[in-house]
Structure formats: structure tokens, C-alpha cells
């Protein structure tokens, strides 16, 4: 990337070239339906936790697929695991398993 010399802040765009996508592959290996999301937001719309607090499983999911895993740790702690998201997903994403896998992956990354 071209460096103009006056950049004092880190580039804020999602940099797929730089992002560590190993986590995506790890999640995919444990839950292949990770790939099926079409981003409709049904999960977040119905989310039990999402009605109280800023917890957006679709966003987390999308960010992870882009290789962004920063700041997801605190967010993932908010899930109540009730399974409504899985019940409305039009693509049959196995969300509860995905969430538990994400939590574990994030835990491992630290």
C-alpha cells in the first residue's frame, strides 16, 4: 500500500490482504454452514440478547468472514444461547454451534 507519509492512524478499512483468515478456516472446519449466511439479519432481528444490548450476531459473523476478529470478545459474551436465531435462519446456518465455536476460537486467540 502506498504510504503518503502523513498517516498517523491505522488504516480503518477492512484489509483482507492483511487480515488473518485462519480463524475463518478454523470456524469453517468446525461448522461448514458458516459459509451459508446471506446477511438477511433475521438472526439479529429476533435475538433475545439483541433487544437489551448491542449484540449483533450477523455483524460478528460477517466480520469474522472478512478476517476481523478484534473487539468481538466482549460482544460474544452477551449471547444467551437461546437458539431463536437458528430457528429463523433462512439458510439453515447452525448458529448455536457457530456461536460456541466462535467463543472458543476467540478465547484461544486471546
Amino acid at each position: 500500500m502506498k504510504n503518503f507519509g502523513y498517516t498517523i492512524q491505522r488504516d480503518q478499512s477492512i484489509d483482507i490482504d492483511q487480515n488473518d483468515r485462519r480463524i475463518v478456516n478454523y470456524l469453517l472446519s468446525l461448522e461448514p454452514s458458516f459459509n451459508l449466511c446471506l446477511g438477511c439479519g433475521s438472526c439479529t432481528g429476533t435475538c433475545t440478547a439483541g433487544h437489551f444490548v448491542d449484540f449483533n450476531i450477523r455483524r460478528v459473523h460477517t466480520l469474522l468472514r472478512r478476517g476481523e476478529s478484534k473487539q468481538l470478545k466482549t460482544e460474544m459474551k452477551k449471547c444467551m444461547f437461546c437458539g431463536k436465531c437458528q430457528l429463523v435462519c433462512p439458510r439453515g446456518v447452525n448458529l448455536r454451534n457457530l456461536i460456541i465455536t466462535i467463543q472458543r476460537a476467540i478465547e484461544q486467540i486471546g
Partner: peptide, 12 residues
């Protein structure tokens, strides 16, 4: 009605 406004990333 409950949904997510996916373009803002918030439940709606």
C-alpha cells in the same frame, strides 16, 4: 415488527 436494519447493523 422486529427485524434487523442490516445496513446500520442494529435491530429494528
Amino acid at each position: 415488527i422486529k427485524t434487523e436494519d442490516t445496513l446500520t447493523g442494529h435491530p429494528l
